[in-house]
Amino acid sequence: MTEKELLFNSGVLTERCPGAELPPRELWEKKKNGLVVIECPQRIPCNPCASSCPTGAIRPFKDINDTPAIDYEKCIGCAKCVAQCPGLACFVVDLTYGEADEALVKLPFEMLPVPVEGTSVDCLNRVGEAVAKGKVLHVTEPLRDKTRVVHVVVPRDRVMDIRAVRVVK
């Protein structure tokens, strides 16, 4: 077993695969409000992302064990799935936001303290390394169930790595 396989087996996405695909670049670049990026590569019995999607962009599952498949044309970047997913595996990445070197990531957050809008946070990659500073634009609680969705402005070249934020003490 290679190091890369072991890394994946410990819960770190190492390459794109079914259930963890990226949107088509051309559409992504121009889609206001962003597109969903899901990182759910394992077939498990779980479907709230699809059943809660208001536009049907996350295609209804044939089998509850399916990994999510997405019709990106329909995705409006609403981040309902970000709040709903019990595995915290849904993110929205908006490449149209801000300056040319910026992008917006909407990610799930269930820790304390909750980030404050307008402050700077550490942006963490998939193994928890602080790879950039981000600015908190909004913090919402779409389902009023204590899972927050943090909208954070990040350096555009880090948008494929940043999957969590940490409040700076």
């Binding site: 410990s10 759910c40 394992q42 498990i44 595996a89 928890g128 999957r163």
Partner: peptide, 19 residues
Amino acid sequence: MPKVGGYWVHAAKVRRLGV
């Protein structure tokens, strides 16, 4: 074992927080 026994997404949740 050479892989997590629980759901991969649960592992990803703690990995990205640096565990």
